[in-house]
């Protein structure tokens, strides 16, 4: 059927060492996705990425930093699933910066 919606997705941006690792500037991933599942999802797509780059990266959702240690964000130690990345969100991995 032509009226079927495509699979809902969010956009993830890769910069600097992240783009080097994925060999992509950005891509679309299936939404929704719990924020706590973001790094494991990426590790599955790009084996070794956690140790090489993700551990030193911050994360933004729609231009706001999210604290990956925060229980409300990850849902760890609570009953909830924490913050969820929704369809159409723009997520970015932020490696250590080096302007100037």
């Amino acid at each position: 059927m032509s009226t079927l919606n495509p699979t809902p997705t969010f956009k993830i941006l890769y910069f600097a060492s992240c783009a080097t690792f994925t060999r992509l500037p950005f891509e679309s991933l299936p939404a929704p996705l719990s924020l706590r599942d973001l790094f494991p999802t990426l590790e599955k797509r790009y084996p070794g990425m956690t140790k090489r780059v993700l551990e030193s990266c911050a994360v933004t959702v729609n231009l706001e930093y999210v604290d990956l240690e925060d229980e409300e964000v990850t849902g760890k130690g609570t009953d909830g699933e924490g913050m969820v990345i929704k369809e159409g969100d723009e997520v970015a991995l932020i490696p250590p910066v080096s302007s100037g």
Binding site: T20, S56, P95, V97, S98
Partner: peptide, 17 residues
């Protein structure tokens, strides 16, 4: 790729990439 915060060289990039 440089990183300002530690003054280290950072992550290397191969030529093909």
């Amino acid at each position: 790729w440089r990183a300002n915060r530690d003054g280290q060289m950072g992550v290397r990039v191969d030529k093909a990439n």
